[in-house]
């Protein structure tokens, strides 16, 4: 469709206004986090910091155990990335390339799990975790998501597109199924694994409700949980809160900017987050 220069200008204007509204809150928070507390409260406000300072971050890490929470979030996210890469590709491979009785039924379960609302499961899952003595443990936070239906679905889609000939040739050679999966399939799954790893890291990093329920002492808090406690303990310390907000958002922002391709691919291949 042909467009005049004026129409183009209007489109760009609309998109730019939208961008300011979408990114503005992040920018404002980030700029505020490097202002001294007095400047944050000043009226009229300064947009660009007059005085640049990292005091808010120093205070945040000294007064609240944000360092521990940060480490906990990283550990939990990395463990979940490893388990999901391994299990989702294994399960996805079986659904894509192996024939077995009850396969369709089992795959139906994947879709069922995708559809069960989290809130419905929360109470009984917590009772189960309590019964297993896993309240306030990493394993309690991690276990329900070591293999996710979305990951299984994604890996199945990807592996289905790999040529059968590869597997047949290996079978003729007498290779065992596990060996085929590990030596032939897995090395070909690079792009899908990258996407799955990113999505897993992202959802673990941002996960709030379940860790908030399971982690009950400060040394077990993840970053969002610790930040929420700070948020609840009176929101007048906006200097600490905005710094905390930057600490939780920045790592994801960096991942996103550098690995955008994989995020968008993830949505495209699964039609889901």
């Amino acid at each position: 469709m042909r467009r005049t220069r004026r129409q183009h200008a209007i489109i760009y204007l609309g998109l730019t206004v939208g961008l300011v509204l979408v990114v503005g809150p992040f920018l404002w928070t980030a700029l505020s986090s490097v202002k001294p507390e007095r400047e944050i409260r000043r009226d009229p406000p300064t947009f660009w910091p007059e005085t640049w300072t990292l005091d808010n971050f120093v205070e945040l890490f000294e007064r609240v155990s944000i360092g521990t929470a940060f480490a906990n979030s990283v550990i939990i996210a990395l463990v979940l990335v490893v388990t999901n890469l391994l299990f989702c590709s294994m399960v996805g491979y079986a659904f894509a390339k192996l024939d077995f009785r009850g396969k369709n039924l089992a795959f139906g379960l994947v879709l069922v799990q995708l559809a069960i609302p989290a809130i419905v499961l929360m109470v009984p899952q917590f009772v189960l975790i309590a019964k297993l003595g896993m309240v306030n443990t990493f394993i309690g936070i991690i276990l329900p998501t070591v293999v996710t239906p979305l990951g299984v679905f994604m890996m199945r889609q990807f592996i289905s597109d790999l040529p059968d000939e590869l597997i047949d040739a290996a079978r003729v050679d007498g290779a065992r199924e596990f060996r085929i999966y590990f030596r032939i399939i897995l090395p070909l799954c690079g792009p899908a694994l990258a996407t799955l790893g990113l999505i897993t890291f992202l959802s673990s990093w941002n996960n709030f409700l379940w860790p908030a329920v399971v982690a009950q002492s400060e040394n077990m808090y993840t970053l969002p949980v610790a930040l929420n406690i700070l948020n609840g303990n009176e929101g007048t310390h906006y200097n600490l809160l905005v710094a905390g907000s930057v600490v939780v958002i920045a790592p994801i922002l960096l991942l996103f900017v550098f690995l955008q391709r994989f995020f968008i691919q993830g949505i495209a291949t699964t039609g889901l987050k």
Binding site: P25, W205, N206, F208, P224, L227, N228, L241, V242, V246
Partner: peptide
């Protein structure tokens, strides 16, 4: 993260 957004 929802909590990062909520604070902002």
């Amino acid at each position: 993260s929802i909590i990062g957004i909520a604070v902002a």
